[in-house]
Structure formats: C-alpha cells, structure tokens
C-alpha cells in the first residue's frame, strides 16, 4: 500500500506491506539509524529503545504497523536539531551527564520531548512518569531526570 507521511518535516512517499512495522520502514528503507531496538521480536516489554513520535506522541515503532503513519507526522532524533542548533533536551542530556553507553538515549530524548511538548514541567514525578516506558541499564536514571528537568526549565514548560 502507498503511504504518505511527514518524516522530520519532509514529505515521504513509499510502498509498504501491511505487516511491515514502522521501525522496519524507518530503519531499513529510510536509513533512520538513531531508532534502536532491544530485538524483542514482537514480545514488547516497554524497553523504549524504538520510541519515535507519531504526531508528537511517543510510540514504540517496533509494535506499530507502518500504515499507521499514513497522513501523519513522524519525528525521530534526526529531526530534533535544526541547522546545527541542538534541541534544549539534547544540550541538557550532554551537560547533565545523562549519556553513558547511549543505546537508550534516542528513545529517552523522544519520550522526554513528547512530555515537554505536552506541557510537562520540571517536577520530578511528571518526568519519572514520562520515561517509565524506557529502560536504561547504565545511568540509574538520575542524570536523565536531571537533564529533562533542566530542559523543562530552559523551555519554560509546565507553567500555567
């Protein structure tokens, strides 16, 4: 079937099989390699490595059929920095020391972006809830929470 969607602000048109996942289309056909996978083969357990944003909401791309993207907008990490300018979340992850091995980083940043774009603020409870669906084996999450808090403050989010 023919799909048309927006990927990181650019129009994409391609043919996809009904059973193809969004993950496969993004990684294998469109070369979007920032999207990771824990290789769970369909038995999803919310590790969050394959998180992308579908119309701004975080979804697991491995568990999402590609056709769900039709007519909608997809954001991956490749779409965050514009013209060499880092997104405040990217800067905050760097400065707060929230990156170790980096495998979970793309999914974490996108989950955090959805949270902040949805009006989420710097309160720790909200941040924890936002990344509950993303596993990290290295950092103990503390500096990831701190990075999201800093980005929230930089963006002035969470204020009425």
């Amino acid at each position: 079937m023919k799909l048309r969607f927006t990927l990181n602000g650019s129009a994409v048109e391609l043919d996809a099989e009904p059973w193809e996942s969004l993950f496969d289309v993004l990684r294998n056909r469109l070369g979007i390699k920032s999207v990771k996978t824990a290789l769970c083969e369909g038995s999803c357990s919310a590790c969050g490595a394959c998180t992308v944003l579908l119309d701004g909401r975080p979804i697991y791309s491995v568990m999402t059929p590609a056709y769900r993207a039709d007519g909608r907008s997809i954001t991956t990490l490749e779409g965050l920095s514009r013209g060499g300018e880092l997104h405040p979340l990217q800067s905050a992850f760097i400065e707060a020391g929230a990156v170790q091995c980096g495998f979970c980083t793309p999914g974490m940043i996108l989950a955090a972006k959805a949270y902040l774009d949805g009006g989420g603020g710097p309160d720790e409870g909200g941040i924890r809830e936002a990344i509950r669906g993303n596993l990290c084996r290295c950092t103990g999450y503390v500096k990831i929470i701190e990075a999201i808090r800093r980005a929230a403050e930089a963006l002035g989010g969470g204020k009425p």
């Binding site: 990771k36 996978t37 990156v99």
Partner: peptide, 19 residues
C-alpha cells in the same frame, strides 16, 4: 564538569553500534 566525550554524537543519534 565536562560533557562525556562522545555524548554529542549519541544525542544526535549518530553513534553506530553492532546493531
């Protein structure tokens, strides 16, 4: 307090793993 040496490529999604 300095950034991790390879943090930039990791937040840009440019780090390449065996995967």
């Amino acid at each position: 307090r300095v950034p991790k040496y390879d943090a930039l490529e990791k937040v840009l999604g440019e780090a390449r793993y065996l995967l």
